[in-house]
């Protein structure tokens, strides 16, 4: 800890100084650019008019969103279900894999590790297309189940990465100590490795849930008739142009994102502090 704080000291001194007008300007530009469209959606969700010109304040689009958009909420239900199940399965598989890859040395370890990270690096559309062709070859009916399989596949590398990063931080002599004290492999896993890796596992799970809720491209290829997710539903809506109901939905999504972002930062912080 001490070693870390020392080179930071000059920064403290510098923090009072201006970082320069150029970088401030660029940062402000970036923030305006990122937020301007979102703010416009929020404002226009309260618009009475169906078009994008201001026709007075109204909550009618929220009413329509909540009370007469049944299929949208059904898609949302599907999304939530797939997110939770695929995140759970990928967290299980990814965590075990991370422990194995990090602690042991065996044949093909490097090859397995490299392959496991590849799905993260190749374009999404390739994964979607290859899974579609694969499922078609197996005569698999495209359904929520194929979406679940696809989501678990692209989630595993992220869980693996996050959990391995967490394992790298910790002192593995405690594992040796557990063995020396007579712990069996299973006991060491349950009582030492998993609790210490827990913050990593938790953030892996959260990332998997977010990625699954968010995914459009891969889901687009592996979904069948009647198996819509929220992003697919939004896609089918926006293809027909601007709709005020989507403005209202956007506000709900943005609000949900803000809550999630703030919450997950605090949860992760809390979990990390408890384990230190």
């Amino acid at each position: 800890m001490k070693k870390l704080s020392k080179p930071n000291q000059p920064n403290q001194k510098w923090a009072g100084k201006k970082t320069g007008k150029f970088s401030l300007g660029m940062f402000s530009l970036v923030i305006c650019f990122l937020y301007m469209p979102l703010i416009i959606l929020v404002v226009y969700s309260f618009n009475e008019s169906r078009m994008m010109n201001w026709g007075g304040f109204s909550l009618r689009w929220y009413e329509e969103l909540f009370f007469s958009s049944g299929s949208l909420w059904q898609s949302f239900g599907n999304s939530a279900m797939i997110a939770v199940t695929s995140a759970t399965v990928s967290t299980l598989i990814g965590t075990l894999g991370a422990i194995g890859l990090y602690w042991y040395n065996f044949r093909f370890r490097k090859a397995i590790q490299l392959t496991a990270f590849l799905p993260m690096l190749i374009p999404e559309i390739i994964i979607g297309v290859s899974l579609l062709i694969f499922f078609a070859g197996l005569k698999f009916q495209l359904s929520l189940f194929t979406i679940f399989l696809a989501h678990t596949t692209f989630n595993i590398p992220f869980v693996l990465l996050v959990v391995m990063a967490r394992l790298e931080e910790f002192d593995f002599t405690i594992i040796e100590a557990a063995y020396d004290l007579g712990a069996r492999e299973f006991q060491a896993l349950l009582k030492v490795i998993l609790p210490t890796a827990f913050p990593g596992i938790m953030s892996g799970f959260l990332i998997a849930v977010t990625l699954s809720l968010e995914d459009f491209v891969i889901t687009f290829f592996v979904s069948g008739p009647g198996s819509s997710t929220l992003p697919l539903h939004i896609y089918s809506m926006i293809r027909f142009g601007v709709s005020p109901v989507i403005n209202a939905l956007s506000v709900i999504v943005i609000a949900g994102t803000v809550v999630l972002a703030v919450l997950s930062r605090n949860v992760v912080k809390l979990v990390f502090q408890q384990n230190r």
Binding site: L38, I40, L41, M51, M52, I238, V242, S250
Partner: peptide, 30 residues
């Protein structure tokens, strides 16, 4: 956090926002 929030907002909604701004019946044209 300011950068992460738009990043986590649904991908399609972020695309849609530009349709609402730049579309033929969008705000800019209006």
């Amino acid at each position: 956090l300011l950068v992460i929030i738009p990043f986590w907002t649904n991908f399609l909604i972020r695309i849609y926002a530009w349709m609402a701004i730049l579309g033929n019946n969008g705000i800019f044209n209006n």
